[in-house]
Each structure stands twice: as structure tokens, then as C-alpha cells.
Write a protein that binds this DNA or RNA. Structure first.
Lengths: 146, 146
DNA sequence: AACAGATGTAATTATTAATATTACATTAAA
DNA sequence: TTTAATGTAATATTAATAATTACATCTGTT
């Protein structure tokens, strides 16, 4: 129901910011050109990452930078920054409130535990993936092309 | 991006079918009343579950029944029955093809491994959840209400 | 054989969620 | 004060979900 591409775009931006360090000022326009997304979408994503303490963005003059080292930034942190409700509700549940059927009256409670387990396993997996590991993979890909 | 409520509705239907065994003929109309979903949606879901060998649906006369015991039916089987593409692509990736930026050219490959890990952890968790366990939880909820 | 009550499915419409765009106030260095 | 940014609200567009309509088909019953 809702792991949107925002997360992918955010990882893209973070790798870009890391690579551009001391080389170029990273503006939302630049990132919009690199990702193919609208600059306002980029600004919203950067704004979320900023609130989560992952990056700083200079007002006025512009330019984004990492606040943490890539090994301290996990995919779960990135995802959580973007999705205020976290993983809860990642799977849709139909609302059948007010119906007499006992299955209808209890289905939401029955699904709670399975869905929580799924959310928790996604969380654990995401916590095991760092920006550093993705940057490493990126560099491997660059080297393989030579 | 896409774990829809179909999965929840399917579990609802399967519990209903299990509970109604030898008591009532389970038609799509009945299930549509219990779930609050449109009967055609129900028929499509039942059709998918049927193709996956989880239930039988009698043509003409009507009525759905389980083909397997609830302990043999996992949440992953149910989910897979409904989603032909499985979990792949559960997380959206922006398309930035044809762009010069090296990040843009490699981001999809960089994200492949992390996203595969996530999909796999969801799969494993879903495989550990049986219809039986959900039916047990349902019965516990019924008893607690007395 | 005709009827009644089902399923199966294609085609269409409606609704909701995700993404993009426009507009403009605000910021800070030059 | 000009310029090039960010920040964000409001709106529009697009894509994904779900609902609806319509009708062919099936099968037990009368």
C-alpha cells in the first residue's frame, strides 16, 4: 500500500551529496536533474532528512551536507524520516466496522499480530543496511565499468 | 507502494469459509456482506485463491471450501496467490534512465540488493504465519468476549 | 426444458493515493 | 539591493485501487 519511491530518491540524494562533498554545492535543482524528480519533491525530501538530523541544508545560499558518517545512517533512519507513520499500516486493512458477523468484528485484531511481525522484520532488515554499504556498492559498480 | 487490502480481505474470507464449514454455503454475496467489499472483488479474490489450490469454488451451485488444512496455508501462499508479481517491486524506484550523472546510472543496481533483502525478510515472516494461527487467535478473541 | 441462483470475467467508472507543478514568502551571501 | 537559494501551501495531474455494470456460463431443482 505505500512504500513509495521517495525512499529511493532519498538514497539517491544522499549518495549524491556524499560524492559531491568538497566538489560542488548540492542544490535541489541539481538533485532534481540527477533524479529526474521535481525540485519541490526534492526539497520536501531534504526537509524531512534535515528534521531527522541526517543532513543540513543551508538556507538562502543553498547546499546540502551530511551530518553523520554514512556508516551511521541506516535505511530505516532514512525511511522513518520520510514516513511520519513509519511502517504501521504498510498493509491495508478493509474496514468492516459495524457489521454483525463475528469474523468482521475481530478481523482487525486477528491481523494485528501478523502484520506487526512483518513490519518488524522490515524494520530489522532496514536497520542492517547502511548508507555506507550502498556507497560501497556504488563504487564497485563504477570500477567494474572501466 | 503496494501491499493492498486484498490480502486482508482474503484472510477474512478464508477464516469465514473455515468457520462456516458444514454449517452454511459460502457464496460471494455472503462474503461481500461480511467483508463490506463488492461481490466482484470477492469473486476475483476467490478465483485467485482457487487457482493457487487453496480453495475450491463450486460453479453454478456455488459455495467455497478449503482444499488444505489451515495449518498448511501460510500468509505467503495467500499473498502470492493474489499478487502475480509477488513482493518484487514492493518498493518503488524512480526511473532516471538516460541521465548522465553516474549516481543516476547506477542507483537501480545499488538499490537492488537492499530491496531484495527486505522482500526476502517479508517472505520469510509471511511463511511463518499460518491460517491456523490466525484462526486460533480469532477463537481466543471470541472466548475473551464472554 | 425452463428457471433460479450461483460463478467467471471483461469493461467501465469512481475513488483514493502519489507525484508534479505553480506560486510566492523567506533567507543570506555578494 | 540583487541574486540564487530554501520552505511550504495550494493546486493539478497521474497512477493505482476499488467499485460497479453487464452479461455469459454453469448446475441443481421444479
Amino acid at each position: 500500500m505505500q512504500i513509495s519511491m521517495k525512499c529511493s530518491v532519498a538514497v539517491h540524494c544522499l549518495i549524491f551529496i556524499y560524492e559531491a562533498k568538497d566538489k560542488a554545492k548540492v542544490t535541489s535543482t541539481l538533485l532534481s536533474q540527477s533524479t529526474g524528480c521535481n525540485p519541490v519533491i526534492i526539497r520536501n525530501i531534504l526537509s524531512s532528512l534535515k528534521k531527522a538530523g541526517i543532513i543540513t541544508v543551508a538556507r538562502g545560499t543553498g547546499g546540502a551536507e551530511l551530518c553523520l558518517s554514512p556508516s551511521e545512517i541506516t535505511l530505516f533512519q532514512i525511511y522513518s524520516a520520510l514516513e511520519p507513520n513509519g511502517l504501521s499500516g504498510i498493509i491495508g486493512i478493509h474496514s468492516c466496522n459495524g457489521l454483525k458477523c463475528p469474523v468482521a468484528q475481530n478481523i482487525q485484531k486477528v491481523l494485528y499480530s501478523p502484520y506487526y511481525k512483518i513490519e518488524d522484520s522490515i524494520k530489522n532488515t532496514m536497520e542492517g543496511i547502511t548508507l555506507q554499504s550502498m556507497i560501497d556498492d556504488f563504487h564497485k559498480l563504477l570500477n567494474n565499468k572501466e
